[in-house]
Every structure is written in structure tokens, then in C-alpha cells.
Computed example of a mutant assay.
Amino acid sequence: MKGLILLGAENINQNAWGAINGCEAASLLEGLHFQKRAEMINYGQFLLDMPISADGNPYRGFGGSPFKNQIGKFEAIFVTPLMQWGSRYGSLINLSGAAPWWLYQSLKEGSPVLVYVTVHFEDPKWEQYPFGKVPTNNHAVLLDGIDSDRVHVSDPIDGKYWLDRNKFETIYNSRRMAVTIQK
């Protein structure tokens, strides 16, 4: 891909709101706000609307609390319930399973992408849970830019920054979970 694309999405600091596990909601709201959706809703209100899974399964809703760690819970919300929730506010497309090229195409079309990665883009630390094997260092960021050898993310923990494209792709490809937030 030639040229620079930088959409300039906002950054929501999940820790400033006390939501130590609120990365998916922050990344989703960043993308919705970028697309001029849910503009009257702040992050705190958005978190209160997030569906919670009674059995702690992130494939059914948020598995625990975005505000604290709970023993036996996996504090995250995965693509299907995130899309059901987020679709009330804007147009989302599930890009899970897609090669990185599809994410970059979405950026080229003006749509940021929520991607499931790991905290600080470290190697995944896999553990088995009743619902499946997942990385305990699960994280979500909003992909909002790319150039020839880097991607730009709005990270709810670490802020906005450029990252080596190969590093991003290695971590993204460990799960290939992504959601485009459209206009």
C-alpha cells in the first residue's frame, strides 16, 4: 500500500475512567465517534450499556466487570456480542478471519477497525478456559492509520502511536479477530 492514511480517531484512556478491562468498549466508542455515531454518549455511559455475560463467557457478552478483575472470569467481550451491542449505534462489519490486507482496505475506505491484539503487542500468553483457549493478555485497539511499513493505533492503555507493521501483523494473525466501524 502506497501513501499515508491517518484517520485521526480520538483516544479514550480506559484507565482514566477506572475501567482496567474496558479496552473493547473504548476502542469501539473511538470508532463510533470517528464515524459521527453515539456522539452524545461518553465512555462511562457506554460501559454501563455493555452486555454482561452471566457465566463469564466473552462469546456471550462481557465476561466479568470492566472495572475489576474477578477470579474465574475472563474480562473481555468478543466479536459476536460486541457486534450485537455496537450495531445499535452504528454500522459494523465482522472482519474476523480476514488477512491484514482487508483491514488496510477498510482504512483506505475511511473506516477504522477494532482489532483484538495483546497488551503492548507482546507475544500471546495462552490459557484454557471453559469456553476455549485465549490469551490472558487480551487487548483491543482501534486501527486508524497505515503507511508503507507501519500501522497507527489508538490504544486505550498506551495512547496513539505508530507500530511496525510486521509486529502488528504477527500479533493480529495469532487470532484474526476484527470489526470495521463504517460510516
Rank of each mutant, 00 (worst) to 15 (best):
Y129G: 06
L4H: 01
H139Y: 09
F62H: 10
V141P: 06
V179F: 05
Q70W: 03
I157C: 06
Y161M: 06
R176K: 13
P66E: 01
A98M: 08
Y161V: 03
I157W: 10
T170D: 14
G8A: 04
L142I: 05
T80E: 15
F46K: 07
E75V: 01
A38P: 04
K167I: 14
F67G: 02
M83K: 08
H120F: 14
A178T: 07
F168L: 12
E24M: 07
Q70I: 11
F121N: 14
G22V: 11
L114T: 12
Q45E: 15
E127P: 06
G86M: 01
E10C: 09
F121L: 15
I77H: 03
Q35E: 02
I41P: 05
M1T: 02
F62P: 03
S91H: 06
T136R: 15
F67R: 12
D123H: 10
E169K: 10
G56W: 06
N166R: 15
G44P: 09
E169A: 15
S174M: 13
D164R: 12
L48W: 09
W126K: 01
E109I: 02
N94S: 08
N13M: 05
Y59M: 10
N57A: 12
F62R: 05
R176N: 10
V134K: 09
T170Y: 10
F168R: 12
V141D: 12
W101R: 15
S148P: 01
F46R: 11
E39H: 04
D149K: 11
F62W: 01
Y172C: 08
G61P: 00
G18L: 05
S174I: 11
P100R: 09
Y43R: 03
W85A: 02
I5K: 01
I52V: 14
G63A: 06
W101G: 15
P51A: 04
G56I: 10
P51Y: 04
L48N: 13
Y116M: 11
S111A: 06
I20C: 13
E127Q: 14
G159K: 00
N42L: 07
G3T: 13
N11K: 08
G90H: 00
